[in-house]
Design a binder for these strands. Sequence first.
DNA 1: TTGAAAACGTA
DNA 2: CGTACGTTTTCAAG
Length: 967
Amino acid sequence: MAENTTENNLNTTRGTLLAVDGHSLAFRAFFALPVDNFSTESGQATNAVWGFATMLSQVIDAERPDRLAVAFDVKGGTFRNRMLPQYKGTREAAPEELLTQLPLIQEMLAAMGVTYIEKPGYEGDDVIGTLATMGEAAGYHTLVLSGDRDAFQLVDDNVTVLYPGHHFKDLKRMTPAAVFDKYKVTPAQYPDLAALRGETADNIPGVPGVGDGFAAKWINQYGGLDGIIAHADEIGGKKGEALRANLEQIRLNRRVNALVRDVDLGVTVDDLAFGHVDAARVDDLFARLEFGSRTRARILRSFNGGELPKAAGKTEPAAGQENGLAAATPQRIDDAAALEAWAGRWMPEADATPSGTRNDPDATAATAATAPDAPGLAIDADLACADALARRWTLDATGSAKPGQARLETLVLAANGHAAVLRAPLDPALAKATQRLIDTHAGTMTVHGAKEHMHLLAAAGLTMPLPMLDTKLAGYLVQPDFHADDLTHAAAHFLDIHLDEEPEATQGQLDLGDGAAGDEAADEPDGRREATRAAIVDALAAAFGPTLDERRQYGLLKDLELPVSRVLGDMERQGAQVDATRLAAMRDGFAADAEQAQRIAWDAAGDRINLQSPRQLAKVLFEDMGLKPTKRTKSGSYTTNAAALQELYLRASGDERAGDFLGAVLRHRETNKLKQIVQTLIDATNPADQRIHTTFEQTVAATGRLSSVDPNLQNIPNRNAAGREIRAAFVPGEGYTALMSCDYSQVELRIMAHLSGDEALIEAFRSGADFHRYVASLVYGIPVDQISADQRSHVKAMSYGLAYGLSTYGLAQQLRIAPREAEVLKAQYFATFGKVHDFLESCVADARRKGYTETMFGRRRYFPGLKSPNRATREAAERGALNAPIQGTAADIMKIAMVRAEAALRREGLASRIILQIHDELVVEVAPGEEHAVTAAITDAMEHAVTLAVPLDVSSGIGADWQLAAH
DNA sequence: TTGAAAACGTA
DNA sequence: CGTACGTTTTCAAG
């Protein structure tokens, strides 16, 4: 799918030339990195060199240019100084610490085999302009990496400027559209605009009081600088006066900022190949600069194109509008009448046709296991979206979608190439009309992130019906391990459309409008940005719809993921009530414990080290105290994790000082962690309602599970008593009397029993006995009542390890038994449950053949790593492929249960509500008098979410807080 | 300033 | 040398 959209750019297939403005890049690097942190023993500053190399290598990695040249300014001035004596007066005063690094940068480039060009009498910019001209003539697409805005005049269909934003990492792609977007003039007109405005960085004065806005207005009014000068008398006001007073300066500015594009460089573009690194020279230079080995490896790899083969036929994608994205025509809508007029003209007809139609009525096998008697939910694999897709329209909102504090900024309805752009706040009549329009057309609505839109719309008093297609969820089903951060990323990845970041709004968001969007949207009242967003959603829908139909996954989207997203949205909006007083008390208690442990540790160590620093800890343990290390971390240092510290503690029984220290560190680790968790919860509590509104991520976990962020409420301690106390701070809110917790027991094992068809394992579950004891008796061939605690726990660990691809080594490690013993256990286990073994093997084999795994409900996960020549990579993929169908099916089942559970609560008119999901557990806030009905409803929804060869066992508990609801 | 690593909480 | 996550903290980058 990615390839399809690049066909429009056949004019750029020759290759890519990267032309770099060396001085401007060095400047950026110098000011971005603290010089104190980057200097050699002898005091030579290296921050600019390091930053330059890093930036350039990042751009090379991202763009894979075929040709590369770096242009530098030359001392001694240019024709510009003769015209304008003060020219670059400020820049000449560059700090000494930067100037001394320029020769080093050039030396590095030479060693890297990169051509750099200096031309006496000209600036680097002129060289760049010339390179762009030459590149164009030779059929290259040219990328100009420069922090100098004068370069914008070079931009055209074949020249893109990469302009560093506030953080040097995020480069803006300045295409013709992007330049126009930002300045409202064409790239060719940019020098006119700059002449009027001036350039403080180059010490060039413009017309006082005239900025980009006025300059653009005049240029568009009079066609350009010549026109403005000719009509200078017609411009009134103070600004007109200022203009007339500075005409000479402006003319001069314009002559100075025009880049020379025909310098004789003495090279051709074809000469600018690179990739022949002189490793010895690089090593020598890096040694002098005291760069580390990691830097060296990273930089060398980028420049030495040989190691990373170029993608064949890679073309430079142009931005946005030039690349097959037909942006909608925006129209600002301010009242209900205007909206209705717009809708009458552009919206597709609403009709009662459901958003999915039966595609394949003859298909038999596809409707994956569903509960036959389950009201409300069946996942229909025959459901197709092709028909509805043809009549689709897009809803897109921006603002902050954070649950509990959502805020709507803009609302766009787009169809047939036209976009109605609404800005919050909406007056009541407009809100009502909008709601009606959305509701009547929900069956053909496409949206990116229905759940986020629920929050955004709710902030304006609107409700969000479920759409026909959610492109965020669709992208997740299509490729669950790709995580698009926002709409721009999704467009880049799935459509190969590279939009420019929103200029200036660095922290933020051209994304869904969630997060901390600035007020930039208001700067662009024309709605172009909004229309572009809608066009992306539309293009994504056009791409995903057919893919889902082909894969028969539309039912999974429509019948499962979309309903789940509504349930999750409700849960997020409700939030979970916490007892702030209790949390504060816990925090103080844990803090006191941690402090005491720290004191003891410091006394024993004789040094006030930072106990939270593994490095400092390792130094004390393995150097000062001379203890023998246990294991290493994956980067080679000695681990100081809890398991290692325990081991050391056991060994150090004779050494009192080490024993005290280790004990104290362990206690500090535990209590400090708990303190941190509690503090995070305190910080996340919404002061308005004393509730914590987490966000459930529905498109992050590659297996199909949910995750929880900001804060994560799926990792509240539960394993030991001290941590579990934290759950006592989760309480029912006003108008509710209890919390109920319901969880599946051994779902994943039950799924394995079902999917493998292993009679012995199925019987183990049907018998209703103590499962692990029962399994142990089979494995060891001993009567159930003679199974020891050890035997039971060993078998239990084995059972749980199965679904993870546990090795005998790992099993031995965990059970603290000999590897040989673990091997015997594993052999015995598989002898008893042969079909389980076969099933696990078949998961991997199927995945190797098809390229992906599948859950019971058709959720896929792709595993390209199965074909890797690298053993570690391959084996990791194998474990993933073994686990994904099991973990994924469990996730599917819980999602079905959630939808059924909420439907049941509503059907029975209960006020109780689901507030949390922790993978196999649901937490419900229970209204007075509903204890019994809620327990029955939720338990039933979970137990009968799906019919398997084994029963689904659900246990529940209810109490005055989450801890007391344990069972 | 950024990103990786280490640690540790959950299922 | 067991899967799937998220958060906090430190520290290197030199």
